[in-house]
Design a protein around this nucleic acid. Structure first.
Lengths: 190, 190
DNA sequence: CCTGGCTGGCTAATGCCAGTAGCTTTTGGG
DNA sequence: CCCAAAAGCTACTGGCATTAGCCAGCCAGG
């Protein structure tokens, strides 16, 4: 019996491939095992269980999203920055509809990479807000607003929640405009 | 063997109770069967299967949400109406964290009650927008914006997505304010 | 009243999944 | 070269959805 030469990262990579191809719900240990040509229980040598695998997938997806966002925001400010970040966020969700929902899992405190990725994503938004002169608790509120609007939009879009035939791109452009308007007039407490 | 005297609505009611008590993920046919004191396969006499039951739960939850929203909006306009609808939406999600996610399922075209409930919810938002003078395609965009912001916020809140300790109520108030500001300055095409 | 058929239950069985226990084989470091 | 840790394996348990096919209760029509 030749060994398969698995490893934890290899298992996570296969999991990501399954998620990309068939969606997050299709991620099962059985599917991973079949894909790498191994019996299902063998995976427990590399991963604590399904939930731990989901957490690692979440960490990887979140790290990728954070990359995409920070790259998009680089060197921009104001509406430009908001549009760039929002477009990048939406494109990530549409391009990788399986991976995106994984980013919504709470970061695992015991996994520093996961926590760091999550913070990197939030910090990108904070940086954008800083250019609007929004800081401190005001920035917390504004970040929640932006996350809510973006997450809400793309999750509805990916889930087919927009029943009407009207142009979704235009709706998103307007959402970006609405965010910009709101940030310009954001209440300042500090 | 005395009969249990089940019926489709009775099964749905039990399903709703389970969802309220233990969350949507806990809704299984086995759980419903145990609760009503019947063997699992018996449920198929009243429901096509788990997915059909989830759809009926979604229809019921959506109808209730539509009620709550339209009641909240009644007789109000402008910021008052936005705040009332937003608060009602959020309260529904927080009060019934199991039921809320069921409202996000796409309405089943073959279930007129489901479709009607969904339309009723959307129409409530449309009515609010009308008071802002937003109609037609502009209203479609604005509705998507509002749904996105509200759904995003409450799903993040319910999911524990707001890691920071800052006051979530205040963040929501500001989100409501941001929506109002955006609607006031919403682009008019028509 | 009583009887036949519909209907709502049942049991048995299949198949998929996660996870545990405990065995064997490979493999690399001393 | 050897031996122990690591990486596979098989066997098993228990939970779930779903299907098939059986049987009993209940109601309508004679």
């Amino acid at each position: 019996m030749p060994r398969a030469g698995l490893s934890t990262p290899a298992v996570v990579d296969v999991a990501l491939a399954i998620v990309d191809e068939h969606g997050l719900a299709a991620l099962t240990l059985a599917a991973v095992a079949q894909r790498v040509g191994v019996a299902a229980p063998s995976l427990y040598k590399h991963v604590r269980g399904l939930d731990a695998l989901l957490q690692k997938v979440s960490a990887a997806a979140t790290a990728q999203l954070a990359d995409v966002l920070s790259r998009a925001a680089a060197g921009k400010a104001g509406l430009d920055a908001v549009r760039a970040v929002a477009d990048a966020y939406r494109r990530f969700a549409l391009d990788r509809p399986g991976r995106y929902p994984a980013t919504q899992r709470l970061p695992e405190p015991a996994d520093p990479a996961h926590v760091a990725a999550s913070e990197r994503a939030v910090n990108t938004v904070f940086a954008v807000l800083h250019a609007y002169g929004i800081t401190g608790d005001d920035a917390v509120d504004a970040t929640r607003f932006i996350r809510s609007a973006l997450h809400g939009f793309v999750s509805l879009e990916v889930g087919g929640g927009f029943g009407l035939p009207q142009d979704v791109d235009r709706s998103f452009d307007r959402l970006v405009g609405a965010i910009d308007t709101a940030l310009r007039t954001w209440p300042r407490t500090s």
